[in-house]
Design a protein around this nucleic acid. Structure first.
Length: 419
RNA sequence: GUGAGCGUAGCUCAGGUGGUUAGAGCGCCAGGUUGUGGCCCUGGAGGCCGUGGGUUCAAGUCCCAUCGUUCACCCCA
């Protein structure tokens, strides 16, 4: 038996409804804020991610699904969406025809990690990228859009954490001093953090290891290295978040794993999922467009993990409304699919959701099926009514049943259709 | 990549110290109602006990390997 690739999951008909509802909510929110949908290919040149996301990020260092195509070009399934969006922005010179581009996406991503709760190898993200403005209001809009959406989906336990990474030069200065500080007490660090010291010293900050957090007491603070401009704009971000009623926590040790972030970064976490608690993460990336060959253009965006959101909704017992109901189930007393099928076609062509039995099952079984499908009504075909050219229609919630001429069935259903 | 747990019916799981034809609940099918659901009752179908090897008179049960899966680390959505 061949099964799905490790870490890739089927979304079966029974569960795709909640995906469609979530996706519809996402599209609606972005529409209201005037974001246009962007769709990019599932694969890109591997070089795009190496350059855009950064060689030190794990997602490009060891987690990419990369392969060579027939021409020998290295291709990678996209592990994240910011680099592709920026690539498309530069390639199509979108900035030339309008100064500000606001785009959203909803797409599968691929990372070759060991699966666990809230983590898959193929997973789905939605998110936004806004290119062309360095306004703090745009940072806030990004955070607020993500936060409101999660709230509206029904999640109540959300922690918004924000921080500022400042400008690359300031951050580099800080990382230098942090590394020096930690080198002096390398013995006190966890093994992982000693490795991080070389690869990406910033990551020691958000280590889960007690020893690391202790060693960090008295370490240099990133905030002290920000220039005045960065400090002012971060203050403005905080004030504006207050103004639109988004609760947040300034988390000095919040660093993000992707190299392109500058200034504002944020994460929205949920205690309702496993240890992979980040439902959403994002921030500003003011140098990325230039890095990928465009004119210097500021940008800001976020990405949210759909599987994690669904997991959080499930764990918080958020009820989902059932929408895939049946208008009419056609029961054939003759137990012959041939009899019911033309009636189903007639109803379907008239716009109703109609179903019948294809298996020649007993009337009782057909009724059970109608009940299982939560059919609003059942239409009985055959018997005495058929001899008189009539059919019977039963309302499944109340149980009342009426008999009427076969020709007036569609009209009757239309007239008595419930809202 | 590292560590730990778990693989028995479609699903969720029982199966002390190895010992006859491997069980339950739910689901599915049929009947109880010559043509009517939800509740109830009766019956039925459905199992290379993940795979391979080993120990033993005897393995679902013990040992080894392997694959899969889950959770955690790492990393991140």
């Amino acid at each position: 038996m061949i099964s799905a690739i490790k870490g890739a999951k089927d979304i079966l008909p029974a569960e795709s409804g909640k995906w469609r509802r979530l996706e519809a909510a996402v599209r609606e929110r972005f529409r209201r804020a005037n974001y246009g949908e962007i769709r990019t290919p599932v694969f890109e040149e591997t070089a795009l991610f190496k350059r855009g996301v950064g060689e030190s990020a794990d997602i490009v260092r060891k987690e990419m699904y990369a392969f060579e195509d027939m021409s020998g070009t290295s291709i990678a399934l996209k592990p994240e969406m910011t680099a592709p969006v920026v690539r498309a922005y530069v390639e199509h010179k979108l900035g030339k025809s309008q100064p500000l581009v606001k785009a959203y996406y909803l797409a599968p991503m691929f990372r070759q990690e060991r699966p666990q709760a809230g983590r898959q190898r193929q997973f789905h993200q939605f998110g936004s990228e806004a290119l062309g403005s360095d306004a703090a209001a745009l940072d806030v809009e990004t955070i607020q859009l993500a936060y409101d959406l999660l709230r509206d989906l029904g999640l109540t336990k959300l922690d918004v954490k924000i921080n500022s990474l400042g400008k690359p030069a300031d951050r580099a200065k800080f990382v230098g001093e942090l590394r020096a500080y930690l080198r002096d007490r390398e013995d006190a660090l966890s093994e992982d953090s000693r490795r991080r010291l070389d690869v990406n010293a910033l990551r020691v900050l958000d280590s889960k290891d007690e020893r690391d957090q202790q060693a960090l007491d008295g370490a240099p603070k990133l905030a002290d290295f920000l220039d005045e401009e960065s400090r002012d704009r971060f203050a403005e971000v905080c004030e504006t978040l207050d103004a639109v009623g988004v609760p947040y926590l300034v988390e000095e040790r919040l660093v993000r794993g992707l190299d392109y972030y500058t200034e504002t970064t944020f994460e929205i976490q949920s205690p309702s999922v496993g240890s992979q608690s980040a439902l959403c993460g994002g921030g500003r990336y003011d140098n990325l467009v230039e890095l990928l060959g465009g004119d210097p253009t500021p940008g800001v965006g976020f990405a949210a993990g759909i599987e994690r959101i669904l997991l959080a909704l499930e764990n918080e017992n958020v009820a989902e409304e059932k929408t895939d109901k049946i208008d009419a189930y056609i029961v054939s007393l003759e137990k012959n699919p041939r009899v019911a099928y033309p009636v189903a076609v007639e109803l379907r062509r008239a716009g109703f959701v109609a179903e019948f039995d294809y298996l020649g099952r007993s009337v009782k079984a057909q009724m059970r099926e109608a009940n299982r499908l939560e059919a609003e009504r059942v239409i009985f075909l055959g018997g005495e009514e058929a001899e008189r050219g009539e059919v019977s229609v039963k309302n499944m919630s109340g149980g009342e049943q009426t008999t009427l001429p076969r020709e007036s069935l569609v009209n009757h259903l239309r007239e008595t259709r419930s809202a």
